[in-house]
Design a protein around this nucleic acid. Sequence first.
DNA 1: ATACGACTTGCAATCGATTGCAATATGATC
DNA 2: GATCATATTGCAATCGATTGCAAGTCGTAT
Lengths: 351, 351
Amino acid sequence: MPDKSSKREKAQQELPAASRRLQMADIARMAGVSVSTVSRALAGSQLINEQTRQRIADLARSLNYSINAGAQSLRTRQNRTVAVVVPLDSATRQHVSDPFFLSMVGSLADALTERGYDMLLSRVDAEHLDAVSRLYDTGRAVGIIMIGQWLHHDQLNAMALRRLPVVVWGAQLPQQLYCTVGGDNVLGGALATAHLLERGRRRIAFFGDARFPEVAQRLEGFLLAHQRAGLTVPEQLKLSVAFAEDSARAALKHLLDAQIAFDAVFACSDLLAMTVINGLRAVGKRVPDDVAVTGYDDIELARYFHPELSTVRQPVVDAGRALVDQLLKIVAGETPESVMLPTELVVRATS
Amino acid sequence: MPDKSSKREKAQQELPAASRRLQMADIARMAGVSVSTVSRALAGSQLINEQTRQRIADLARSLNYSINAGAQSLRTRQNRTVAVVVPLDSATRQHVSDPFFLSMVGSLADALTERGYDMLLSRVDAEHLDAVSRLYDTGRAVGIIMIGQWLHHDQLNAMALRRLPVVVWGAQLPQQLYCTVGGDNVLGGALATAHLLERGRRRIAFFGDARFPEVAQRLEGFLLAHQRAGLTVPEQLKLSVAFAEDSARAALKHLLDAQIAFDAVFACSDLLAMTVINGLRAVGKRVPDDVAVTGYDDIELARYFHPELSTVRQPVVDAGRALVDQLLKIVAGETPESVMLPTELVVRATS
DNA sequence: ATACGACTTGCAATCGATTGCAATATGATC
DNA sequence: GATCATATTGCAATCGATTGCAAGTCGTAT
């Protein structure tokens, strides 16, 4: 090759070949063919002679060569990466470490792996949720799965309007432009409540922060079950409790201090339920004899708890699959419906 | 522009501009400057007139434009993504769902976010661990963090030989070519054991699978503590227990059925410990009165357990930071030492 | 009026792959 | 032996950005 080379990009040439990342041109040179042929061979094109193809494939494998993802996706305009976003609460500066969300991440990782997708995991400040779109705008991911809609209904709608491929784990809301996958929270709330009522409990305290859509729906189910039983719920028993340990402890303390009678607690997460049970135990109340408690989520450790926790199961594995399925549909240009997954009550020992 | 255009790539032009992903050329056209200028403006180059820069930046922001990551990393040969790998056990076809690993993922996500890196999360079949290198070979990630070395010491060494930037959460081993970050397992094992001995326990059962390097070291500490106290451990009390619930249950059943006396259990994970405690309770043994139990990891739920679990804390947050730090050093061309993080005993109610 | 330097901006090559079309080799057909 | 269809392979443009160098503008000193 004559002096067509410029002195522009110099670093490359001077490095010892060994320490450079292998690229298609290297394979081509070693195989004595052109880059096009290597590209086609590795893509399994019919155009390439079977022997050549095999030879190139073997060579590439033996050298541990793999195609540069950036270059490939640049040229083909596609990639196989999905962004999963776990919003973190900047207000409390605390990381969303609820085991339920973590297990959802695990389930998503599996579902994506099954389908040959990679997962880009981001924690994003819930206040700057729009930063999420960057993951898509930069072409890093073909779509976004958000775990938890929290208080961000409007922002999510805005994102959907911008035509961002996004699916959200959460509740279905009226006026919702984005696709959600979630459990049947009304049913879940109703099931747990009806169960407690059936057990003869009449003063069931609700522990949850109804600003969150999912919790609001569970509250709705809670009230519905009472209504069906011809009962009304005193305001005192509807406690606004954040998904945080001290919040649950404070609420329990409030009930006890104010001497508000209650014989059951419907907690909106298993962690809340466990905190409540431990708090009750600390003041000498027995579970479920004095107070029955149900949780929500059915995290793995609910079975390990003592007494084993009665709870409403969220189908994490199905959820992971469904979230991925719906997202891929959106990516494929469809506009899939939101999905509501079946929810079931798991009665164990705390109720 | 004259007829220099070919009919090759046609899709692009015909699409309504709205549905196409915005690119630098669009911004350039709208701002009435060249692509180079936009590139420099967005990169904050001093070469660009401040007003122009501001104008372009505003335009880009208002249009929600962000630079295509693939093209950028192709050109600059760098990117800000780290792959985190959670091996999954293909033998049992079971997903590694231990809360400890999940919380490590969370901690890594935080540590990476702090440093402006994205996290690519993969679950990889432990049998085909070499697939991991693909994440690097394809240029998708600048380096790899493996959570758990399991039984793959040799494969990890091989990867290090291939000069893959990789850091592993696990134990330091002799002849180790890769960088690890881990707790002081020998110390951890010794601390818990010494504590149980101090409490007057003399027949402590060890629950763990010593094929795993970390567990082997905990066993070493376990034996060391006995030795220091002038005691020896009967073989019967060293039980090989996998990180799985049924395995723990079976081991406990074996102890009881064979009427092997024991007054304490040192379990190599909190999940194991909880399983043991529940099993003991099922047969009417009291914890810690009849049998004291300590776990390992100090997962968040250890505090929620009843009785609250005594355990050896693994510093998950520091671990995340350290793993990231070491990896970035490797990426920067250094060859950092392995890190051993401090380990402490947390005495709660089960011992 | 000319020249020179300081600022700004644009041109065009480049990153590592993919792919339409042209080019070549091979064998079959007449 | 010339022609043509078929099977393989290579050339060169392209994806969306970055960046060295050239070129342009403007003010001012000569």
